[in-house]
């Protein structure tokens, strides 16, 4: 039987923990709003960008970023958060990357990794395959961060350091659901044949410089857009996952407090009963 003091100390401790988890839950809720806003702000840019990409789908040519080669080395860009305490969010992305790595290796393809975000790097550095890492940027990043990452990946691809690049991140589906997702990044696949209408419309465009040269500018930008988008998604997913995790932790704390309180009461009652017995016993002895 634990002593009364032990139990009451433990109750105080658990209550303090629950205060912290509750606060973290609220902080994440506030940060989630910011991250969602950032995602919304990016939406028009991405939409317009994709429209233009589609209207250029007629352009054909040899672009280094569209070159399809036999896959000897595959690169996986793993986008995770910098901080933990968000449930299995990062673990799920890492697990997905590990599975893909195993698949590649079974097929005799070498794998290199680019880690964006500390948690992915922590989990994957023991594989010794991490080529580059971009840490401590997930908290407050901007387009130029994505551009640096994109430039590095593109340069590596052009030098045949990798023949295929996949990007993995946690897709923000809703506050409750974040899905680890893999997206093919390089070589850029030509957009599927646009409908006749679009093709006809794009034929009337005046291009400056030529369609092909515009594509050359657009392709690296396309990578920026993809990477920035995945970072935004992870940013929002991380906060949502942390909110859920902290909510669960707070609930677990109150369950433990209930349990401990009932143990405490039992111990208290046992102590009182014991004391009473002593008093009654003592009184009886005096009477005797």
């Amino acid at each position: 039987m634990p002593s009364l003091k032990d139990v009451s100390d433990k109750i105080v401790g658990v209550k303090k923990t629950s205060q912290i988890t509750k606060a973290m839950n609220m902080v994440s809720a506030a940060k989630l709003r910011g991250a969602q806003q950032k995602m919304e702000d990016f939406h028009p840019y991405a939409g317009k960008f994709n429209d233009t990409m589609a209207s250029l789908s007629g352009a054909s040519g040899d672009y280094p970023l569209m070159e399809v080669r036999d896959v000897k080395t595959a690169e996986i860009v793993v986008v995770t958060s910098d901080r933990g305490l968000c449930g299995s969010f990062n673990a799920n992305i890492v697990k997905m990357a590990e599975k893909k790595m195993a698949e590649y290796e079974a097929a005799g393809v070498k794998v290199s990794l680019v880690c964006v975000g500390k948690k992915g790097n922590q989990a994957l550095k023991k594989t010794g395959k991490v080529r580059t890492k971009h840490l401590d940027i997930m908290g407050n990043f901007q387009m130029f961060n994505a551009r640096e990452i994109a430039q590095d990946i593109a340069a590596n691809f052009e030098e045949s350091g990798a023949d295929e690049v996949t990007i993995m991140y946690g897709h923000f589906k809703s506050v409750g659901v974040q899905v680890p997702t893999a997206i093919h990044l390089l070589p850029v696949k030509p957009t599927e044949e646009a409908g006749d209408e679009v093709a006809a419309a794009s034929g009337d465009y005046i291009y400056e410089p030529s369609q092909e040269e515009i594509m050359e500018v657009l392709l690296p930008l396309y990578m920026n857009v993809m990477i920035y988008n995945s970072m935004l998604q992870v940013g929002a997913s991380e906060q949502a996952a942390r909110m859920t995790a902290m909510d669960n932790a707070t609930n677990a704390c109150s369950d433990i407090v209930d349990e401990l309180t009932s143990i405490f009461n039992k111990a208290r009652q046992a102590a009182i009963t014991g004391d009473l017995m002593d008093i009654v016993g003592g009184a009886e002895a005096l009477k005797g």
Binding site: S55, D204, I206, Y207, E208, I214
Partner: peptide, 19 residues
């Protein structure tokens, strides 16, 4: 500031795409 220098666009310009 377009690719080939500064350009101006007025109303009802023909479809145009430039870096």
């Amino acid at each position: 500031p377009g690719f080939g220098g500064v350009f101006g666009v007025l109303a009802n310009h023909a479809p145009f795409l430039s870096t």
